[in-house]
């Protein structure tokens, strides 16, 4: 094979990415167009109506955008007190030891569990607990979904944060020790500030994962098409409304679902891009 042919083959293979991504964007936009055209773009974003009575179809994305943001934000809040200790355990306290690699294997495996199985566990183990604690009558809702979601994103946040914590130079830590600091003080006043932007960006990427998580949320959020009025009430996320209704929808409803898909795609793309750019910056420093 000549060098020229080889170059062409590689180039053609690389073209697959622009083609697929362009296709994703194009298909989402063209199929969402009907809904945006019918309801108006802003109106679609700000309406929380979702009714498919024939002749008076009303679709808006607000309930689901709220549902997604609520579950993601709560998941992030629950995720931090678990993932930060894991990152410190692996990247600082037990850096390079056997026990650290055991813990990181466990978190890796946690990342590998299919989301439908997280959903089952949440439904059959966590939901009854929520009911018996009198948190909500059916046990499902934003809070239940967020708790399981938090566990799902711990591995991502923890492994990336640990990487940045490991990169804090020994010189700096020893300097701080030589001034009389305890381990806790070194972590608070040297490790966190130095690794801070990297840790922050790993949480941004974890948010990116939580935003699009489908099955777990679908099985646990309760699937009601309203804006959740508290963290224990039921609702729907953007991904879960699509999973629930896509199979049976056509016409304007299908287009509305695809429009929600487009919004979700844009939000995750934006969050992921911010996260990646920040990570690159944090690596250079």
């Amino acid at each position: 094979m000549s060098d020229k042919l080889y170059k062409i083959i590689l180039f053609v293979a690389a073209l697959v990415m622009p083609v697929v991504c362009g296709g994703v964007f194009y298909a989402l936009v063209t199929d969402a167009y009907e809904a945006f055209d019918y309801f108006g773009f802003l109106n679609f974003l700000t309406s929380s109506e979702w009714s498919y009575t024939e002749g008076n179809e009303q679709y808006g994305a607000l309930s689901f955008i709220t549902g997604t943001l609520m579950t993601t934000l709560l998941a992030l809040i629950f995720c931090i007190p678990l993932s930060l200790p894991v990152a410190l355990f692996v990247g600082e306290y037990f850096k390079g030891t056997k026990i650290a690699s055991v813990l990181s294997t466990i978190t890796d495996l946690l990342a590998g569990i299919p989301s439908i199985i997280y959903g089952l566990w949440g439904f059959y183990t966590l939901r009854p607990i929520m009911i018996s604690l009198n948190i909500s009558p059916q046990g499902s809702g934003v809070l239940t979904a967020s708790l399981v979601l938090a566990i799902m994103i711990v591995p991502y946040a923890a492994s990336l944060s640990a990487e940045f914590i490991k990169m804090v130079p020994t010189d700096l830590k020893e300097s701080a020790y030589s001034l009389g600091a305890t381990h806790a003080e070194v972590i608070r006043k040297v490790v966190f500030p130095v690794a801070g932007s990297g840790i922050f960006s790993s949480y941004i990427l974890a948010i990116g994962r939580a935003l699009g998580e489908t099955m777990t949320v679908t099985m646990l959020i309760g699937n009601t098409n309203n804006i959740p009025n508290s963290i224990t009430s039921t609702g729907n996320s953007m991904a879960s409304i699509i999973a629930n209704q896509f199979g049976e929808a056509d016409g304007l409803r299908l287009s509305s679902l695809i429009a929600i898909g487009l919004i979700l795609f844009l939000i995750t793309a934006l969050i992921n891009m911010i996260g990646k750019v920040m990570i690159k910056r944090a690596r250079i420093v």
């Binding site: 990415m17 989402l28 489908t214 699509i242 999973a243 898909g261 979700l264 995750t268 793309a269 992921n272």
Partner: peptide
């Protein structure tokens, strides 16, 4: 290549439910 690399990240971060929609349309 940098563009392709960026798109790879984009595709990797795309929620699977959206990949489902796209395949449905395509």
């Amino acid at each position: 290549a940098q563009f392709v690399s960026y798109l790879t990240d984009l595709l990797q971060g795309t929620p699977s439910v959206i990949i489902g929609i796209i395949t449905y349309v395509w």
